[in-house]
Every structure is written in structure tokens, then in C-alpha cells.
Amino acid sequence: MYHREKSIQMKSSASALYNNLSVLRAAPRGLTHYTVVHANLVNMVSASWDGLNVSHRQLQSKEPNATASTSLIMQASWCVLPSRDLLVLTSQKGIQMYESDGSIMVYWHALDCPDTPTAQAVFSRGIAAVQDKYICVGVSSGVILVFDVPSKGSNITLSEVLEEHREAITDMAAECSGGQECVADLVSADDSGCVCVWRSGEEFTLLNKIPGLDMTVSSVCLYKGVVIAGYGSGQIRLYEALTGILHAEVNGHARWIYSLDMAPFSGLLLSAAEDSFVRVWHLSLLPETNSVEVSHMYNECITDTQICGAKFCDADGSAFAVTGYDLSEIVRYAQ
């Protein structure tokens, strides 16, 4: 179904972080852009679809105070809004938003960092672009910060703080299809395994809270009203977003799942884990029985690699990319 293509080399390796890969496809220029975090650096790679033309850039975590030490980056992700694309970095010190090429920082939000050595670690993690103008970012305290982003300029404002989670946010995902008003368009997960389903708007509304199973949910997706959650146990669970009904449970991996991704046009689901396997599944929604059918389509073992990031390169799922801990390359597969 897929074959391995030429890997793309990076200037530094990937850190062992959840969802440590973001992909932005720029169709008019025939380029695919990748970001991979290494410590306090972000590897930014732009590659032509055939992989022959590649350009590199490294973005370092910056602080407004020039004397401040750089902080470890927890995640880097492109947020695609109708009017603009922004690159969002989350770190131990705060949240940074850049123009999509990383050239200009347009916004900085500092986190409240306690001074005592025994204080709980503070960081931000989990990024999602919601509706037409919001970027949501999770924090280690469990709160979700909602930023209102204008169509241009740097007048980004913190519009709301969502306080439903009690543990550190691990991941968030958003969906809205075809300009239709979605009932649920944001899902968030935390270290305890709790998953919250939200509807965005002038004020965000909590629609459902799926209780945790004492196992971390490291990655989540939202697809046509179905929440897909990847667990530290290696299981993938599919819930109905509004009711929390469990549609399916798949023992997909032998070890901790690090990344999930959906191809919305084809219903393909990508999962990747510490067990060195990346797998592709197909989701079929069956309205007549209000159920979801999961079919296994493809798997690939990247030998001796702790996979930490996997993303489809397009909305059809015709290609995907994978990163691994301490691996200085992006491994690519295409149909």
C-alpha cells in the first residue's frame, strides 16, 4: 500500500516528545514543510514532493528578556487559519507564535514559573487551531489558554482560560468540515487519561468529559464527531464525542502510543508508538447502527527506532512522515 521514499536529513535529531512532528503542505509552491523539536531548537525543513530539493532552518527558543536562559521546547506545530498560518512553539517558559516561515515572532505569552526548587514543573504542551480565529494551547496545570488571532498583525489576545482538566495537558485536536457549524470542534486530553470535548465560540462550552482510565492519553484526533484517543497502554479507543459511548477499542501497539493523525478526506488513521511500528487504519462510520468500523490497512516496522512523531502529508493520506528519538532524519512513505 505504501513504499518507503528517500529520507529527509535534519541538522539535529528528534527529542523523545509526544507528537514530535508537524507538517504543513504548501501546494502552490509544491513544497512540504516539516518541524521537529530537538531540546531548545526546532528543525524546520522544506522539501519538494520528490524530496530532491531540501532547505533547512533552525529556530531557537527565544525569551523577551535577553539575559534569560533558553528553555526546552515541548512542541512545535503549525496552526492553519483561513487568513494566515502561524508556527506555535510551546516551552517551559511560555508560548511563542511566529509567522509560518519562522522569520518573525508575532506574539509571546509567558507562563508563571514558581521559584521554589520543589515546585511542580511548568510547561505548555498541546496546540490546536479552532474555528476561524482561535489558537488553543494547553498548560501543565491543566488549563487551556484560548488566543484570539486577528487576520493579520500581532494584536493577539488571550480571550479565555478553560479550567476543566486537573492534570497536565498532553494533546489537543480540532475539526470543522466544509464551513458547517460543528457541534463539537475541539478535544483535549491530559496525563490522567481524561478527555474533554468542547464547542468553540465567543465562549467555549464543555460538551462532554470522558473520564480517565489511570493511563495517559498521549495523542488525540477528532473525526466526524468521533474522538480517537491513543493511550500509554498501546490501545486506541474511539468514543462518540457527545455521549462518550465507546465505539471501539483496538490493541494497536505493544508500547506507548506517541502519535495519532487523521486523513479527513479518506478516513485513514495513522498511529505510531515506542514499539517501532507505524500503522494505518481505516475508519468507516455506520450511521444506521451508530457505530464505527476499524480496519487495519498497513503497518511498517522502523527497526530499532522509538517513534515519536507521525503525520500524514496530505488530507487524503497518500503519504506520511515519521520521526524517531535520536534519529536525524524524517522517514517518508508514499502510495
Rank of each mutant, 00 (worst) to 15 (best):
G51P: 05
G126P: 05
H282I: 06
S83M: 01
G102C: 13
Q92T: 10
L285V: 14
K152S: 06
E175P: 04
Q9E: 06
F204K: 02
R199W: 09
E300V: 14
F277R: 10
W108T: 03
W281L: 15
P117S: 02
E300C: 14
S141K: 09
W256P: 07
C196A: 15
E175C: 04
Q92N: 12
L145G: 05
S233K: 08
W198L: 03
V294I: 13
C182V: 01
S271W: 14
S100E: 13
V280F: 01
V187K: 11
G234K: 10
G30Q: 11
L86I: 10
N53Y: 12
A315N: 10
T32N: 02
C176I: 05
S91Y: 11
G201Y: 05
H3N: 07
A189I: 10
Q60Y: 12
V122H: 00
K152C: 04
G267H: 06
S124N: 06
I8H: 00
E99H: 14
Q9I: 13
Q58D: 01
E99D: 02
V88H: 06
I330N: 01
A321H: 03
V122A: 00
P211L: 15
R125G: 04
V280T: 03
T118N: 01
R279F: 07
N43R: 05
C301V: 11
V45L: 06
M262W: 08
S219A: 12
R237F: 09
D112W: 01
